[in-house]
Design a protein around this nucleic acid. Structure first.
Lengths: 251, 251
DNA sequence: CACCTTTTCTCATTGAATGAGAACGCCTAT
DNA sequence: ATAGGCGTTCTCATTCAATGAGAAAAGGTG
């Protein structure tokens, strides 16, 4: 960078600034943002003011900055995540009407699960999924099903990056490869006690081209005998509907 | 810009590139993007490849580029629009259960209405609202109610920018100032035939500080006597619930 | 008022960014 | 096989947007 020792580009810096905000830090002072984005304070002020000019950032009355509506609007106008969510919404609502528990839609991203949508109800059990939030792939049922239905090179890369990966809890001791193979053979996965001892996560793939999962549809229900068989057909029907609605659109 | 005659900044160009995508053009060739963003082709390729590196853009198998999940994720992690939508969702679902028509949530932005969320059902009448889409403020009931409950300087600016603004159709000939004053006095607005001759748009404000609207909640129902009185209490209750759930969070 | 923090501005410097055009890669038609 | 067209990447001389240390200004608190 001109007159800077770090050599990063303006775009890298812009991305770092915008990425500094998350659910734990939805707004922050410019000083804190400078630290988080690893930029000198004067530079940060200048970038912030430019971003505010485009409504990518906003300043609240206390002087803290937060993401602006302009960024959300640009990102939502034609992005694949909102498209997927819109396609999935009616099916997820049908599922929730039947199941009355958390229904969630996720994709695989950087070895993690990224939640695209989540429908909740008041009777739902505890659940950690948050929209635009992430969880480790192998520790959620949707993550396991996404891995199971991903191309082999994706799976191999995951194993290579996680050599010490414990199997998901509740699988009865099988290793992750076995768990994925079983999920692939069955066409779904049902895992007990991952998030909470009292719950079962059931997940099915939303299949795209080449029998790979473009997304996963999951529910978290109380851990009771019979729940899997009761809810699985609903879930699979929903996933088929979503896949059909999405057509062959790549994510 | 270095060695460029246009003098715009990297951020200006970034915004132009990302803004080139919308619902009508969800993906495009790099050449088309260069035209849309008014950049030389070589520069566009370079920007595109940098943005692909951050997953702000993606390339599909045919070589077209589209917005990437990375942009959506960054924009959704802590932005006010998803916060508003999450807060509103249970109330909107309740409303829809009763009304069984389009339920929509919108904010005022650049003299237009920006739709944050829309719930539909199969029995719904025709409706033009699309999430992250815009419509002229004075031609929608949510827009009218947002203007009515905005600070006076916002209203005056709107009148100044739209001196030839016709009154919303279906108001019985009053000018816009009168329509806004009435909406403000009543606490809601109900407008016939704006989008479609056969429909009525009913909208109420989601009030924040200073009795100004941070959002508007609206439904579009068949144009029938009695519908306003039937549905208005549900809508107002929902708006109050959303306001409470949002607390005093500024948008 | 003094002090501290936050924000804006200055300015000499710089290297990331530029775009015209060449080179390369790929595809299609003859 | 060759020629032509189109999309993509690279080259390179040039440039100016961007830089950050530090000063100045603004704002808040005791």
């Amino acid at each position: 960078m001109a007159n800077s020792t770090t050599g990063d580009s303006t775009l890298d810096r812009l991305v770092r600034v915008l990425s500094a905000f998350d659910a734990h830090a939805p707004s922050m002072s410019v000083g804190a943002l400078a630290s988080a984005a690893q930029l000198p304070v004067a530079t940060t002020y200048r970038l912030v003011n430019q971003l505010i000019g485009h409504d990518f950032l906003r300043k609240d009355p206390s002087g803290n900055v937060r993401l602006g509506l302009g960024l959300w609007e640009v990102a939502s106008r034609s992005s694949s995540a909102p498209d997927l969510r819109e396609a999935a919404k009616p099916f997820m609502e049908d599922i929730q009407a039947v199941v009355a528990q958390h229904t969630q839609l996720a994709v695989l991203r950087d070895d993690e699960v990224l939640f695209i949508e989540r429908l909740s109800s008041r009777e739902s059990v505890v659940n950690q999924a948050r929209i635009a939030g992430r969880l480790p792939a192998h520790r959620t049922s949707v993550g396991v099903v996404l891995l199971a239905f991903s191309p082999p090179h994706v799976q191999e890369a995951y194993f290579a990056d996680h050599p010490q990966t414990l199997p998901p809890d509740g699988t009865g001791g099988g290793e992750l490869r076995k768990v994925l193979a079983q999920a692939r053979a069955q066409g779904y996965t049902a895992l007990d006690g991952l998030i909470d001892e009292e719950t079962t996560g059931i997940a099915v793939p939303v299949l795209g081209r080449g029998a790979t999962a473009v997304a996963a549809l999951g529910i978290v229900v109380p851990r009771q005998d019979g729940n899997v068989h009761t809810f699985l057909p609903v879930l699979m029907t929903g996933a088929r509907g979503i896949a059909r609605a999405m057509g062959s659109t790549p994510l």
